[in-house]
C-alpha cells in the first residue's frame, strides 16, 4: 500500500522534473563544447552570443529553474495534493495519515537527492568534456593517490569516512526537514478558515525561530549543557560529535514537525 503511494507521488513529481533534469544534462554536454569559445577574443558580434553566451545563460537558468521547481512541487504536492480537492481521494484511500505523510516526505527527499546528483553529474560531464584529454589519465592517478593516503594515515582516513557518512546522514535528515517544515507550516495554515496562505507563511517563520531554538537547547543538554563548538576544533575527529549533534537536532526537529502535521491531519482536518 505504501509502495503504491510512493508510485503515485513519484509520478506526479517526475512528470515535471524529468524534462528539467534532462535539459540540465543536455545543456552540460552542450556547454562542454561551447564554453571554451567564451574566451576567444577574435569571435565577434551576435555569433559569439549564440554559440557561447546563450548556452551558458540557459545552463545557469536551468539550475535555478530546477531549484525553484523542486521547491514549488514540494509545496504544491502537499497544499493541492492533500489539502485541496485531491484530498478527497487521498484521505479516503485505505491508508493511514502517517503513510500519506511518509510517502510525501520520502519522495521529497528522493527528489532532492536526485537533483543534487544531477548537479554533480552535470559538473562531471562538463569536466569530462572540457578536460577530455587529461581526464582519462586523471582517474587512475586519483585512485592510487587515495589508496596511498589511506595506507599512510589509517586512523585519519577512517575519521574522514565517518565524517563523510555523518554528513550524508545529516543531508538526508535535513532534506526531510525541508519538506516537513513546509508541511507542518501548511498544516497549521489549514487550521485557519480564511487566511490559509498567510497563516502558513507565518507558521513557517515561527516554526523556524521558536521550535529550532527549543530543539537546539534540548539537544545541548545531551552534550553536557553547551553545544559543541566549531571554533575550538583541534583535531579532525572533533567534528564527529558536532555533526552528531546536528543530526540529532535535525532528527528531533523532523519528528516534531511530523507530529504536528499528523495530529492536525488526523484530528483537525476540515476539507472544503
Amino acid at each position: 500500500m505504501f509502495g503504491k503511494l510512493l508510485k503515485y507521488d513519484f509520478r506526479s513529481y517526475f512528470k515535471t522534473l524529468l524534462p528539467i533534469w534532462g535539459a540540465i544534462l543536455l545543456l552540460s554536454v552542450i556547454n562542454g563544447f561551447t564554453l571554451p569559445r567564451l574566451e576567444l577574443p577574435s569571435v565577434e558580434g551576435s555569433n559569439a552570443f549564440f554559440t557561447s553566451v546563450l548556452p551558458l545563460m540557459l545552463f545557469v537558468t536551468s539550475f535555478i529553474v530546477m531549484a525553484v521547481t523542486t521547491l514549488v512541487l514540494i509545496i504544491q504536492r502537499f497544499f493541492h495534493g492533500l489539502l485541496s480537492n485531491e484530498g478527497y481521494l487521498m484521505f479516503t484511500l485505505p491508508v493511514s495519515r502517517s503513510q500519506l505523510i511518509g510517502s510525501k516526505v520520502f519522495v521529497s527527499v528522493m527528489v532532492q537527492l536526485i537533483s543534487a546528483a544531477v548537479v554533480l553529474f552535470s559538473m562531471l560531464i562538463l569536466g569530462v568534456i572540457l578536460g577530455r584529454d587529461s581526464f582519462l589519465q586523471f582517474i587512475p592517478t586519483a585512485f592510487s593517490k587515495v589508496f596511498e593516503i589511506f595506507r599512510e594515515y589509517p586512523n585519519e582516513s577512517w575519521t574522514v569516512i565517518l565524517i563523510g557518512m555523518e554528513i550524508f546522514v545529516l543531508a538526508l535528515v535535513s532534506m526531510a526537514g525541508n519538506a516537513l517544515h513546509l508541511y507542518a507550516a501548511m498544516a497549521l495554515g489549514h487550521l485557519s478558515k480564511k487566511q490559509k496562505v498567510a497563516v502558513s507563511v507565518l507558521a513557517w517563520v515561527g516554526l523556524n525561530t521558536v521550535v529550532s531554538n527549543v530543539v537546539i537547547r534540548l539537544i545541548s543538554l545531551l552534550f553536557g549543557g553547551s553545544f559543541p563548538d566549531w571554533l575550538h576544533m583541534e583535531e579532525l575527529k572533533d567534528a564527529l560529535p558536532i555533526l552528531l549533534f546536528a543530526i540529532l537536532a535535525s532528527a528531533l526537529l523532523d519528528a516534531i514537525y511530523w507530529a504536528i502535521t499528523e495530529w492536525i491531519l488526523q484530528r483537525k482536518l476540515n476539507l472544503e
Binding site: M1, K4, K7, Y8, S12, K15, G81, N85, E86, G87, Y88, L89, T92, L93, P94, V95
Partner: peptide, 25 residues
Amino acid sequence: YLPDRDYFADWMKIRDMMDIFSDFY
C-alpha cells in the same frame, strides 16, 4: 465514496484512475 466534486489530477487518463483504484482497493 462518490464526492460532489472532482478529486483527481488533471493530467491523468481514465485508465490511470482505474489503476489507482485497482492498486488501493
